[in-house]
């Protein structure tokens, strides 16, 4: 966005070279994973080792556990995102519009929970969820992931709500809208992109997390990540592992495409 005096031919060249390097750095590891996912990596009848083949993808669908893990992942992430949004939107609104006793402490607590590494809490969370009978259940993962997703959601949503002028609320209330009516009829449509970005980041952080997912699903209800871990053994089919990895990337990449124009918005901060 700099005006022209700062742009020179040489700078443009450097910029394109740097971008090309960055593209290669990010894409080569994934490119190799995709190639391996289409390669037969174990000796099989009728397919030469190292041949290009769809056998790994066929094997995913032949394995009931792997298919179930796709469903488990989608289920726990959807529940987590819905739950996080439902509780974070009111909190973000409250923090954006009002001051109240302890609001600063609440913010500090949110920050601390976002920063607490899952390993620190994994043991008591395991024991707590065992008592609640929520082990080996994708819903358990959905609940625990609120720990770091609620702070992120409140952070992003608050900056979007704060961008909406307060007069906007007052007009809605003067028109006789109730609080729920205001949220659904006015606020949510007004911060649509913010909701999208929040969903994206909550999805991402929940989808990729493995420490809680591992301790909560030791024997059943495994998400994709844990199903992949269980593929490792004496004679690991690395092609199958990579095929599952490619599958695990698809929803995220799709979401990136949907929020591409808003991904960098919503990080304006208030201490």
């Amino acid at each position: 966005m700099l005006p022209t005096p700062y742009r020179t031919g040489f700078a443009t060249l450097v910029r394109y070279a740097a971008f090309a390097g960055l593209v290669a750095f990010i894409l080569v590891p994934l490119g190799q994973a995709i190639v391996v996912s289409f390669t037969s990596t174990l000796p099989r009848d009728g397919i030469e080792l190292g041949d290009l083949s769809l056998v790994n993808y066929a094997n995913i669908f032949a394995d009931a556990d792997l298919v179930a893990s796709l469903g488990n992942s989608i289920l726990y992430v959807s529940v987590n995102v819905a739950l996080t949004l439902a509780v974070s939107l009111p909190a973000a609104y409250g923090l954006s519009r009002f001051t109240f006793v302890g609001d600063k402490h609440l913010m500090l607590l949110l920050l601390a929970f976002r920063l607490t590494p899952p390993v620190v809490l994994s043991l008591p969370v395991f024991l707590l969820f065992a008592q609640l009978n929520m082990l080996n259940n994708p819903i358990g993962i959905a609940l625990v992931h609120c720990l770091f997703n609620i702070p992120i959601a409140i952070w992003i949503l608050e900056s979007f709500v704060s961008a909406v002028p307060k007069e906007f609320d007052e007009t809605a209330f003067l028109d006789g809208h109730s609080l729920p009516g205001f949220f659904f009829g006015y606020l949510i449509p007004a911060i649509g992109p913010g909701i999208g970005v929040t969903c994206f980041f909550c999805f991402v952080f929940s989808w990729v997390e493995v420490v809680f997912a591992r301790i909560l699903t030791s024997t059943g209800g495994k998400p994709i990540t844990m199903a992949i871990d269980s593929l490792f053994g004496f004679n690991t089919d690395i092609g199958l592992v990579m095929a599952m990895t490619v599958f695990s990337l698809l929803p995220g990449v799709l979401l990136i495409f949907f929020v591409r124009n808003h991904i960098a918005k919503g990080f304006q901060l208030r201490a």
Binding site: Q32, V210, S248
Partner: peptide, 23 residues
């Protein structure tokens, strides 16, 4: 570029070492 930069963020954390040790 923003889309590209976001891609590694959506890779599950236990997959990242697998992808790189393969590389």
């Amino acid at each position: 570029m923003l889309m590209l930069l976001a891609i590694p963020l959506v890779v599950p954390w236990n997959m990242i070492p697998i992808v790189w040790t393969t590389l």
